[in-house]
Nucleic acid binder design. Structure first.
Length: 209
DNA sequence: TTATAGATTGCCT
DNA sequence: GGCAATCTATAAT
């Protein structure tokens, strides 16, 4: 918890393999966001893997476009898109340049910067679990809490603290990784590509799994 | 506690 | 023109 920002960041090499390999390793790591002097951080408790041409639900499935450029670029970069016209969602690109693949961040367990997160979400927050879940439990919520937008952050290099958005390993031991179908998609919905920490209360609500 | 509708932008057919 | 990797408020059980 202390000195999270001083830990070495996960580097490009970590993000170079297939997203299915990286996703379970990403659980338990810590996503950091620095804006000015304020630091916000959350433990990654739920992610989904998105592949390339074989995955109809992936934005990269139809080929490279202006919008999904980042997915085909170097690994370790932020892919931010607008969902349903009003929410942003954050991915990190995987695989070597020229090959698409990414991991969607679906839920965090808040560690520091509660007040800033609450303010960014437009919420008044208490210390109750139910209240804290509202901060970062859901892909669009965590973007709002960390003030991540497409305009500001799409294409950002997440392998260095200099970018203000990066991931560290604080040596936290995860209990158990569970796998299920992905949430909220209609194409390739049967693929088991959602990874989460079993029993963690900050995992987003599971609808039909 | 679960179910449903509505908001709202930009991408692709 | 249709649709989408979501969230929230409101309604009903």
């Amino acid at each position: 918890m202390l000195h999270l920002a001083a830990l070495p960041p996960l580097r490009t090499q970590f993000y170079t393999p297939d997203p299915r390999e990286i996703a379970p390793k990403l659980l338990g790591k810590v996503l950091l966001r620095k804006k000015g002097k304020s630091l916000r951080a959350g433990r990654i408790v739920e992610v989904e893997a998105y592949l390339g041409a074989d995955d109809a639900a992936a934005h990269a499935a139809a080929g490279q476009t202006e919008r999904n450029n980042v997915l085909f670029g170097p690994p370790g970069h932020a892919y931010v898109y607008l969902s349903y016209g009003l929410h942003y969602c954050l991915n990190i690109s995987c695989m070597p340049p020229g090959q698409a693949g990414s991991i969607l961040f679906r839920a965090l367990e808040p560690l520091t910067g509660f007040a800033a997160m609450a303010k960014a979400r437009g919420l008044a927050i208490s210390n109750e679990l139910r209240s804290l879940r509202m901060l970062t439990s859901g892909p669009a919520r965590l973007c709002q809490a960390l003030e991540i937008t497409r305009e500001r952050d799409n294409g950002r290099d997440m392998t260095s603290p200099d970018s203000g958005l990066w991931i560290v390993d604080d040596n936290h031991k995860v209990q158990k990784v569970a796998i299920s179908k992905r949430i909220g998609i209609t194409k390739s919905a049967e693929l088991p590509l959602r990874y989460y920490l079993e029993g963690n209360p900050f995992v987003s609500a599971t609808r039909k799994v």
